[in-house]
Write a protein that binds this DNA or RNA. Sequence first.
DNA 1: CGTCATTTTGAGGTATTTCAACGAAGGTGG
DNA 2: CCACCTTCGTTGAAATACCTCAAAATGACG
Lengths: 229, 229
Amino acid sequence: MRGLHASSFLKSVAHHEIRLTDRQRVALMQIATRIVLPARSVVYHQDSPGGSVYAITSGAVKGFRDLRRGKHAVTAFLFARDLFGLAEYGQYVNTTHTLSLTTMYRLPVMDLAHLLKHDAELQFKFLVKITHELRESQRRMVLMHRRDATGRLAMFISMMSQRLGSETAHAEIWLPMTRADIAGYIGLSTESVSRAATALERRGLVVFDTPHEVRIVDPSAFSRLVAAV
Amino acid sequence: MRGLHASSFLKSVAHHEIRLTDRQRVALMQIATRIVLPARSVVYHQDSPGGSVYAITSGAVKGFRDLRRGKHAVTAFLFARDLFGLAEYGQYVNTTHTLSLTTMYRLPVMDLAHLLKHDAELQFKFLVKITHELRESQRRMVLMHRRDATGRLAMFISMMSQRLGSETAHAEIWLPMTRADIAGYIGLSTESVSRAATALERRGLVVFDTPHEVRIVDPSAFSRLVAAV
DNA sequence: CGTCATTTTGAGGTATTTCAACGAAGGTGG
DNA sequence: CCACCTTCGTTGAAATACCTCAAAATGACG
């Protein structure tokens, strides 16, 4: 488990000014297990003992909590270079689920904690990463305050665009999640998400080539809507 | 007492009680400045350079972002033993504002980063703290998915109760923020918060001795409502 | 290519928002 | 010390936007 795998893990944590040294990468690889899961696989279930942290190399994962009547609140969409499971040390509070074919590294929390305790530089990079996530979640709070469904969806698309921007140079934005997942994330009903999507198209802001691929055709008007908080 | 081992890490997250050693406390005090601010003072403003992290000793602080038309989204309420400013490494993205007389320590981010990079144990405690905050924010996501205003307010009161539980042994829950602040936090209008408050009282679940002091008079029914996600 | 899940569209019900006004509380200045 | 003023909190009524229920159309996957 060296060479290609190791370098892809380097990339997985290198997001947002985080870059590991060779020695750090090797240390992490020694405790890591590479995992490849098909779409719709459960990574871990809520209320199970939280023994590991995961770093995504490619693919997409959603984290959610079950609510009443089959509904579920989506707590996060995770992509390449994201970490997850870290916030749930001790006991997982979310279920995580792959949305597509996903490769990731599993890091046992005991080993990771030991490693971080002896490498302050490495730990600092984790701290920066978590800190960045906290900031992300604050952006989502702003999204949740919007009253209009179309504005929420526009903001959601904008957020997804930013996260995937580094991967795809295309204007095509990949939305691997279902409408129900989006609804569970931005706090609307599935139908409202669908209606909001058609509303954005009818207003000439975006085009959905498929339900999971969207292009922004009027960037300035789109940005105006997103910023019209 | 040696360092924080992996097992004690789990424990500390579970009970979210961060305890510093005397030496760590001294090290932090050397770079810290003690600040006492009266109510309604701005600690820092959004879009200003983020040079410091703050640790609250007593009092209450709110973090928020301005939206259109005088509205503002409240991103956090912070109390004793909370840190803030850390998520905004480099550039503050929120404005922070005292809600009452507040004492806090200001830690220059440069000095703090230097300290953390040389004291993995101390940094670990910061990581635990941030990790816990991330988890908190996920709980809030669940709150935001509730459709009914009374349920949201009940959940909010429950959250405040938990945060202040260690300070006051009383059943009296202190809500230092205004109705508008609560509204900005749970995503409702000010009027809806007010109506939800009276609804909770009319249903015999709580009693508001003042607009800022609430007692839970029917704990089982109250818990049932909170859990009825 | 068939089957099932997902997505879209429609119509009505309902909760919250909005607009408006009043009452209460806290702070300030004469 | 009191009066004034600003901010905060509460209540009412109408409008709006979303949710729910239901069914058809589309898409995904074996």
